[in-house]
Simulated assay, not measured.
Amino acid sequence: MARVASGMHLLQSGVPLEIIRDFLGHVDVKTTEIYARANLEMKRKALEKAVDGTLLPKIPSWQQNKSLLEWLHSL
């Protein structure tokens, strides 16, 4: 279990899989890739970055169109 924790910590620190493979003594990097698939914390952080609002405008563009809003209100 300590090796699993070490592998995960190395991956979270940004160490390339090839180096982690060598550190853990894996013959094939595919074995080491299990750590990348299992690392839910990294996935959670990536999702948070994707939805933190920096990728999307704060106000939808249609709400910034005053003439469109006036027309919608007139309906």
Rank of each mutant, 00 (worst) to 15 (best):
H26G: 02
A46S: 08
T32N: 09
N39M: 05
K30N: 09
D28Q: 06
H26M: 07
M8Q: 10
A46C: 08
E18K: 13
D22T: 08
Q12P: 12
A46T: 12
G25M: 05
R37G: 03
K45C: 09
L17K: 12
A36N: 01
A46E: 10
T32F: 05
D28F: 05
S6T: 15
D22F: 00
P16H: 14
T31A: 00
T31K: 02
A38L: 03
G7K: 08
T32R: 02
Y35T: 03
E41H: 01
I34S: 02
K30E: 07
Y35P: 00
L40Q: 07
N39S: 04
D22R: 09
G14D: 11
M8W: 11
T32E: 03
T31I: 05
H9R: 14
G7C: 14
K45V: 14
G7N: 13
R21V: 01
R21H: 01
E18Q: 15
L11C: 13
E33H: 06
V27W: 06
V29E: 13
A46N: 11
R37W: 04
E33R: 07
V15M: 04
A38G: 02
F23C: 04
L40N: 08
T31E: 04
N39Q: 07
E18A: 14
K43T: 10
I20L: 00
V15G: 00
I34D: 01
S6Q: 14
A38P: 01
E41S: 00
Y35R: 06
V27D: 08
V29H: 12
K30V: 08
K43A: 10
I20E: 00
R44L: 07
M42W: 02
K30I: 02
T31N: 05
I19Q: 13
D22W: 04
R37C: 04
R37N: 03
V15A: 00
Y35E: 02
G14I: 14
K43N: 08
K43V: 09
L17N: 10
E33F: 06
G25S: 03
K30Q: 11
S6F: 12
M8Y: 11
L11A: 11
L11D: 06
G7L: 11
D22S: 09
S13N: 09
N39W: 02
R21G: 00
A36Q: 06
N39F: 02
V27F: 05
K30M: 07
T32I: 04
V27S: 09
A36F: 01
D22K: 11
H26E: 10
G14E: 10
L10T: 12
I20P: 00
V15N: 01
A46V: 09
T31F: 06
P16I: 14
I19Y: 12
G14H: 10
M8T: 08
L10Q: 14
E41V: 04
L40C: 07
